[in-house]
Write a protein that binds this DNA or RNA. Structure first.
Lengths: 341, 341
DNA sequence: TTGTATGCGTTATCAC
DNA sequence: GTGATAACGCATACAA
């Protein structure tokens, strides 16, 4: 069933059918009605490949999400919906897994769908410089790994938080509550993404407070457990606990892992926050439902999304934007941190 | 940059480039190497739309997931990866939201990508009969709503659990622990998917145990809160608690909601399982990390996935399969249920 | 307002 | 082993 079949059945040419299907101007409304009725009846669905091949441009953008099981990204999705709806753009969400090369995937998608723009969510740009050249359409990096210095010279606009800085603030907060021996549940040992930046921030803040960095207070994610899951948080925390080093608080670099940390503490025969305080990172909804409710650094998901969409649309409309938007996190004080004398 | 450019640069015809790109037989391996080197250097990416338009068939299937925030489906994804890899098939995962029409989306996707088969995950088939006629390629329904009776006559193969039966087993279990006044956290009032079946199972089991059905012991999800989230579980449970009816246990139709139920119980000044027992449904990993660890009915995700993939591949290979595979859940007894005298 | 013709970038089918 | 060339299904410039 192609456009040709419909044309024959309706006794019109294929261009007329095409016009009807695309709400094109210059077609008798009776003809259109007649055609659309047939289309509906015969259940004709135009072939998107042919469409995309022919079309000069679309009104479509894409969000390329790296991190299937990152609930923070998931929480952003509804805001993207709103943002693109308001902008009158359609969009597709494309998930890729950790090993995939986002730049390559993006390039394919752009060509296939004649995308007008693309927003990268998560992951890490190995070489932001070349990405743009390859992609050929405007992009925005959102929550993509990279220190300020790293991207400062890049023409790629991005919105994110300063992971180093914000991680440092977590340590500052814990110190303000009297904690001095602070452990961190970090990424994998070889991580080069946000996990590394948060670890760096932790180190830096420790130094600023005159506390020595102790490698034994770092719990790395295991390489054989899916990243950023409860299980990975549990394993890393259990490692730490079993080392026997003394400490009073956990800084967990992602909320979902914090749930595993809670469990590890309990299984170790201790309690949160009486024996160990815990601070998470991201500010996802479900942390409200943990017991005790998790104190966490919340990223302003809605603002970050709106800003990303705005920056993309501005570029699509021809403006040159190379802005680097860094948002601040907000501390959500709940019940998982105990004040020390 | 098209196949034509590559051909010109390499001084060969486009057919030769095509052959090189597709590992086609009948091409000098030196020529291929030379071409591929150029392709790599110039970063040429073939246009998928053109490919899909022309190709007679692919080695690709799709999984159409309805339910962005259903962690049970998410937990199935790695198994699909394994299943399709073993079968030598590529696949794409396509998420659609609750309002979308999966049959229509599938039809579009099949045409666009020349898919060989499609697995539906979640949602509800309004009319399984017509779906096949429209889709034109083999499909398998996995965890799609529908009672046994409903699909019994359908030629569409599906794998799932008997939601009614398994929900009844939860009630049986609670009764065996001495509970008689059992509340349920159900779907929305107008639900017609698995949530309804689980509610029906609950009713049926109640009857079998000589317990009257009490509408006041049903907590429906609010329509203004995203389905199956912690927040929806919390709201529904709070409703229930505030009604003042006496009861001793919650049957929560999905694990993620159970987390909200815990919180509601605590906020109400009660404890799990001392004051209220809780049983979840799905068996997702994170339930292990709840405190107390959630007792839940686990669906055999891996088996269900493997079975779905097998049934799809069999069909693709030409066999006619109309099997209806119903799996049993397994009770994971943990710490959230108290035995009553 | 409608129809005709062309080409989008690729694969498939021939010839050579 | 390689090269022409005809589709694939559609949108669109142009003619009618």
């Amino acid at each position: 069933m192609t456009i040709k079949d419909i044309a024959e059945i309706c006794n019109v040419s294929i261009s007329t059918v095409s016009r009807a299907m695309n709400d094109a101007p210059g077609i008798n409304s009776e003809t259109r009605k007649r055609i659309m009725k047939m289309v509906d009846e015969l259940n004709y669905v135009p072939n998107n490949s042919a469409r995309n091949l022919k079309r000069t441009y679309s009104h479509m953008a894409a969000i390329m999400v790296k991190g299937f099981n990152n609930p923070f990204f998931q929480s952003m999705l509804p805001y993207f919906q709103k943002g693109f709806d308001d902008a009158g753009f359609q969009y597709i969400i494309h998930f890729i897994n950790e090993e995939a090369d986002e730049a390559y995937e993006a390039e394919k998608l752009v060509k296939e769908k004649k995308l007008r723009g693309i927003i990268f969510l998560g992951g890490r740009m190995q070489d932001p410089q070349v990405v743009m050249r390859r992609i050929q359409v405007p992009c925005v990096l959102c929550s993509v790994a990279g220190s300020y210095e790293e991207y400062a010279s890049s023409p790629l606009p991005y919105v994110s938080i300063d992971d180093t800085e914000e991680a440092a603030r977590v340590v500052d907060y814990l110190c303000s509550r009297g904690h001095r021996k602070i452990a961190i549940i970090a990424g994998r040992r070889d991580d080069t993404t946000v996990a590394l930046h948060r670890l760096n921030g932790y180190r830096r803040a420790l130094g600023a407070h005159g506390i020595g960095f102790d490698e034994d207070l770092v719990g790395y994610m295991h390489t054989d457990i899916p990243e950023y899951t409860e299980a990975s948080g549990y394993a890393a925390a259990m490692d730490l606990l079993c080392r026997g080093r003394e400490f009073t608080a956990f800084f967990v670099i992602s909320d979902r892992m914090a749930m595993g940390v809670y469990k590890a503490v309990y299984d170790f025969g201790k309690r949160v926050p009486e024996d160990y305080s815990v601070v998470g990172f991201d500010g996802i909804e479900s942390t409200r439902y943990m017991t005790p409710a998790l104190t966490t650094m919340a990223q302003p998901a809605e603002k970050m999304v709106q800003s990303s969409v705005d920056m993309l649309m501005m570029q699509i409309e021809g403006e040159k934007v190379t802005k680097h938007e860094l948002y601040q996190t907000q501390l959500c004080e709940r019940e998982s941190v105990k004040s020390l004398p």
